[in-house]
Amino acid sequence: MTPARRSGPAVIIWVIAALALALLVLPLLGILLSAPWPHLPALLVAPETLQALGLSLLTGVISTFCCLVLGIPLAVVLARSVGWAVVPRRLLRAAVTVPLVLPPVVGGLALLLLLGRNGILGKYLAQLGITLPFTTGAVVIAQTFVAMPFLVFAVEGALRGADRRVELAAASLGATPFQVFRTITVPLVAPGIAAGAVLCFARALGEFGATITFAGSYPGVTRTLPIASYLASQTDLNQSIALALVLLVVSVAVLLGLRDRWLPGVRG
């Protein structure tokens, strides 16, 4: 094959890749270009903005924590499901993947039907005096629901890449299965856990559909940044753009942190 023939497809690929990148980046540039820069300082320190930002960060951190506690064991089970029969293995994988492909509004509706005041589980919770819908707790549940797959898949990938035989070595030294999990498995996949947590937090931060359906939009209680931005876009576009800008900056900052920095100390 001649160099000239090889460079042909490469150029087309470069052009298409550039188009794809433009589709991803140009709309964001649009936000920057239309931002009401002169009014921005005032809009950013407005109580509604700070309230929404604070709520978003708080719920994002809590739901990321929930994803870590619940998602790491789920990732372990998923990684070990390789040896299972086909049907349960595929069902498990589908169940973990569903929140990724489901419209978040549907997820929110499902949560409402399950945990709402007259919901399947919700009515029992109500008897115990626990009401979830339209509370900050509901925001956390909605975010955990949509963000969990990001964590599970990142950790599962790390588990598959790790040399699991060191777990046998740990067992031969007297470690129980839970001790092996805590002292060997988790540290071994720490980079995957960190990467998953970052993606999880970014997804939770941007969560809109499930939150507004299941938790509503009460200022200071459930009105997170994306919801505040959407509501403002109906009345005050400048306010909406300012909120969107905050969301964009926080998200990009979080994702820029997603680098090699969490490689375990062993390599540092």
Binding site: V166, G174, L188, P264
Partner: peptide, 17 residues
């Protein structure tokens, strides 16, 4: 973990962290 049998593995399998 209850057998109390020490094992030296072929590639040693030290804990990297």
């Amino acid at each position: 973990e209850a057998r109390r049998i020490g094992v030296v593995f072929q590639d040693f399998l030290l804990f990297p962290h």
